[in-house]
Design a protein around this nucleic acid. Sequence first.
DNA 1: ATATTAAATTGATCTCTGTCAGGTATTATT
DNA 2: AATAATACCTGACAGAGATCAATTTAATAT
Lengths: 231, 231
Amino acid sequence: MNKKEQYTGCTISSNQTSCFENLTDEEKNLLEKNSVRVNYKKGETICKQGSFSTHIMFIEKGLVKVYLEEKTNTLVLKIVPSCNLLGLTSINEDFITYQYSALAYFETEIIQIDIHFFRKLLIGNAVFAREVINILNRNSVQVNGRFFCFTHKQSYGRMADIIICLSDRVFKNTEFELLLNRNEIAELSGMSTETVVRLLRKFKDDGLIETGNKYLKILDYDRLKIISEHG
Amino acid sequence: MNKKEQYTGCTISSNQTSCFENLTDEEKNLLEKNSVRVNYKKGETICKQGSFSTHIMFIEKGLVKVYLEEKTNTLVLKIVPSCNLLGLTSINEDFITYQYSALAYFETEIIQIDIHFFRKLLIGNAVFAREVINILNRNSVQVNGRFFCFTHKQSYGRMADIIICLSDRVFKNTEFELLLNRNEIAELSGMSTETVVRLLRKFKDDGLIETGNKYLKILDYDRLKIISEHG
DNA sequence: ATATTAAATTGATCTCTGTCAGGTATTATT
DNA sequence: AATAATACCTGACAGAGATCAATTTAATAT
């Protein structure tokens, strides 16, 4: 029987797509011709919500923050690692502009694929289209889970979530160099910077984690997990 | 130039799919054979999160609440009117169970389509697949907008949202019989029943709406709109 | 090394909104 | 019609977390 999954505020999809494997050699060739590689430095904007959507992006290397913005408000939808696609929403011609912004968390290499070409690929290759549907669905499920967490968990739980998430999915180690500052963690977990500071201190005082200068170490993974589930 | 859309907590997709128009006559025939019609009464469960996903559902008539649940918590993702599909997530074979629950708000007629057959349709007909992709994308955009609202707007704004939404999209009239009770409105707008009551009273006192026995009338649409945008 | 800017921290306060508890009105049932 | 059961309403209270202001620490530039 399936283990019943708990929702976590975790944003980082651990999925990696292999959708291009479904293309024929000829399609792959054409893909090559209709693509360009672009490198982004930490903090650079990869695509901007509201601007014309001219291409679909494939993350070749790096880590990308995908977020919504309106006035001064921001909502991080997901953090996307390498081997994932960005901008798929605009496959739909109703969405002539990007529906979200994306930004490089650090050094990131993107392959831009012409959107008209991408649409042609979809029409011409149903197996490929099917794989894209799968990607979209995995995405929704993940964002929905995050939505659930944001509305039902309080800060303790969300903080625990993000620590676990960083450990499990990004750095794959219980001890890691913390590349995000307090402000970025706040954004990710949907709370204020001050609250992040206070919670991290509390977790430290309680012996759950150890934090130093830009580094974080999990001391009591199990207890964090419990907080994640009940907080 | 495009008017810049504001996010609203509005849940009701005004989209209606016509994806089946892309099928050949033969496919339509097969579709007929692989489908059954089911009628649901108000409050009945149409599909249950966590149960095996055996079919995709098409809403022929009615109104459906789609929501996530975990323990005692609930999150309404969207309200879906007729001519829309449910359960598309499970096109992806990774999701052998439904990822959300759905319930009839009132008398609803559903066409259940065998999921294996639906998958075959997708593989066999790229135009159809493309339309399904469009549906999924419209869906995500809507749910994301709602996510944004829930995290950034406070109760006043969300309350205004829902009143406008009911008026514009469901009953298509500024005066309507309120089919939802306070508890259901609370669920929809992500707040407690008491808060809903208080806000409705406040809106009434401020001359924004008129409420009577199970009915609601908008008196000052423009001011509601302003509250929706700034609240 | 010093100055300047940015990030992290801490404390105090304040507000929104949920919870609880107790009402009244409305609807359903016998 | 009487009773039971919901739904609706109101007030009091409390707690989570945001905001503001001030200080310390770290990072960067001169």
